[in-house]
């Protein structure tokens, strides 16, 4: 039997959940979200420098906070409380029980809200983890959960940043944390599959956080575009698709299952080319003609 995987994986899986709107765990209740313990050391918006898998995967983190203008790797986006029945245990629950709880208490939807994103905004290079009281603090009565977002590189290692992630998706320079895809371009024809890329890097399509399984009716590109159109409009915050933009879905094959991921790209009359930036409208506006970021 293969030995158990380290605790990092569930959190990485949650990172994937960020991409898939509506596929995350159920949101925390208002009581849970609103609960902030009397522990003054834990506050939303605090930044930390976590650089090893052991620090990231631990049940608790007791390292000092750093100024968010200084290099950091995580930022607290939510403070919640452990619900019943686990909160009633005299001893802190097992690490795996806490990890499972993180998926519920620190949902991707809450992170998106903290980032200032809308339902159609997809992110990349982020992972969620939850930090619980130490065993001693638990025994003393603390039940606070610190939900942190970790900024990562393509190989999932921590990426240091000096940026404050609060409302980051609502800013013009949001491209580095937005999810885009890079497709093969062969003889002026785009490949159907794409690899994940931050929108600040050259790419071919920007994700609009909507996907569905590909059945026989969704093999033609036109059918895919038609199905994706409402999501693209939602993403662009418009009622009619602008003339200079096209719906550009990609196909993702995962474990034998084929899924269509909806995307958008500038219409390119000279044939498909890679572009940089995002088509997402800056908060309060509709889609701009040029890519932001």
């Amino acid at each position: 039997m293969r030995p158990e995987l380290p605790a990092v994986l569930p959190a990485l899986a949650m990172a994937a959940a960020l991409i898939l709107t509506g596929c995350g765990a159920g949101p925390a209740t208002d009581a849970e979200v609103g609960a902030v313990s009397g522990d003054n050391a834990v506050r939303v918006g605090q930044c930390y420098l976590i650089s090893t898998p052991e620090e990231y995967g631990a049940s608790s983190h007791t390292g000092p906070a750093v100024a968010c203008s200084e290099p950091h790797t995580t930022q607290t986006f939510l403070v919640a409380a452990v619900p019943q029945p686990l909160s009633g245990q005299a001893e802190r629950p097992l690490h795996e029980q806490l990890q499972n709880l993180t998926a519920r208490l620190c949902p991707a939807t809450e992170l998106r809200r903290y980032l200032g994103g809308a339902e159609r905004d997809a992110t990349t290079g982020m992972a969620i983890t939850g930090y619980y009281p130490t065993r001693a603090a638990w025994s003393a009565g603390s039940r606070t959960v610190r939900c942190d977002v970790l900024t990562t590189t393509a190989d999932l290692a921590p990426r240091e940043t000096k940026a404050d992630l609060k409302d980051a998706l609502a800013r013009p320079e949001s491209a580095p944390i937005r999810l885009c895809y890079t497709q093969e371009i062969t003889d002026g024809v785009l490949g159907s599959e794409g690899t994940d890329t931050p929108c600040s890097e050259p790419h071919t399509t920007e994700d609009v956080s909507a996907w569905f399984g590909q059945d026989a009716s969704l093999v033609p590109l036109a059918a895919q575009q038609e199905r994706c159109l409402p999501f693209v409009l939602d993403f662009l915050n418009v009622d009619v698709l602008p003339a200079d933009v096209e719906v550009r879905p990609i196909v993702r094959v995962d474990g034998g299952a084929r899924a269509v991921r909806c995307g958008v790209a500038p219409r390119q009359s000279a044939g498909p080319e890679r572009w940089t930036g995002t088509l997402a409208p800056v908060a309060g506006t509709v889609s701009g003609e040029v890519a932001n970021g």
Partner: peptide
């Protein structure tokens, strides 16, 4: 960082980096 990557080879180097709290000790 990733489990699937670091189990493939040996990485014998350990650099000074005091880990605090639960980051150091039994996983």
């Amino acid at each position: 960082w990733d489990y699937a990557d670091f189990t493939r080879f040996i990485y014998p180097s350990w650099t000074p980096h005091p880990l605090v709290g639960e980051a150091c000790g039994a996983a």
